[in-house]
Design a protein around this nucleic acid. Structure first.
Lengths: 113, 113
DNA sequence: CGGAATCCCGCTTGATACTG
DNA sequence: CAGTATCAAGCGGGATTCCG
């Protein structure tokens, strides 16, 4: 079970899958769309997702090379399930941030003695 | 958003929350219930969850000390959302493992040259 | 353009020992 | 029992370079 949920344990995976929600994208487009991801991590993430069958990788033999990534049916179903968590996060964002503030006020960092 | 989803990005968090689904547990009980977690990580995880308001920490002044952890209402709602993902993982577990096998067969590890 | 390979630093985590 | 403190190690991941 953990091996499966590892799919989403990696934060980049959900972001990449989410970015491909309703359109096929090239490597470079994904790189620009998913802000903050390095080329290395994008490559590794895409390999994982392809291996799991969540997306397909299509190479068009041309110059310059053109590689497109498209969400599979399976990938779409994951997105549906993950959306529940995304909605939860959005709905409780303020509440959680308030909780953190209160906690931090009540539990100040240990002072130097 | 990422700061919020970080709640579940840490694999121990979901396991701990899930373990507290329907019962209050003491530190030691959690330690035994969540197999593989170190004392250190359990402590850190519990602090995070408490800070976010997903569970409450109750100290009973007695000898020996007795500290109980209980899921909050907020924690329960997270569990509900997370369950959607858990169900997805369970439902597609075989499919994904098949995909991985096929991928690994088609993409053997690079041989030494 | 889309990667693969290498180097390497830092953060996370485990192991261990100590304490209220 | 339920932690905290400390240290060392492993590896995740960024930066860089090179290739088809």
């Amino acid at each position: 079970m953990l091996r499966i949920l590892g799919v989403i344990g990696d934060k980049w995976s959900i972001l990449v899958v989410g970015t491909l929600r309703d359109r096929t994208l090239r490597f470079g487009e994904l790189h620009r769309a998913v802000t903050g991801i390095s080329q290395r991590m994008l490559t590794l993430t895409l390999r994982q997702l392809e291996r799991d069958g969540l997306l397909t990788r299509t190479v068009h033999a041309s110059v310059p090379p053109r590689v497109e990534y498209t969400l599979t049916e399976l990938g779409s179903t994951l997105l549906t399930a993950a959306t529940a968590l995304g909605d939860w996060a959005a709905a409780h964002r303020n509440e959680i941030e308030n909780n953190r503030r209160h906690y931090d006020e009540a539990h100040p960092p240990r002072a130097r003695r």
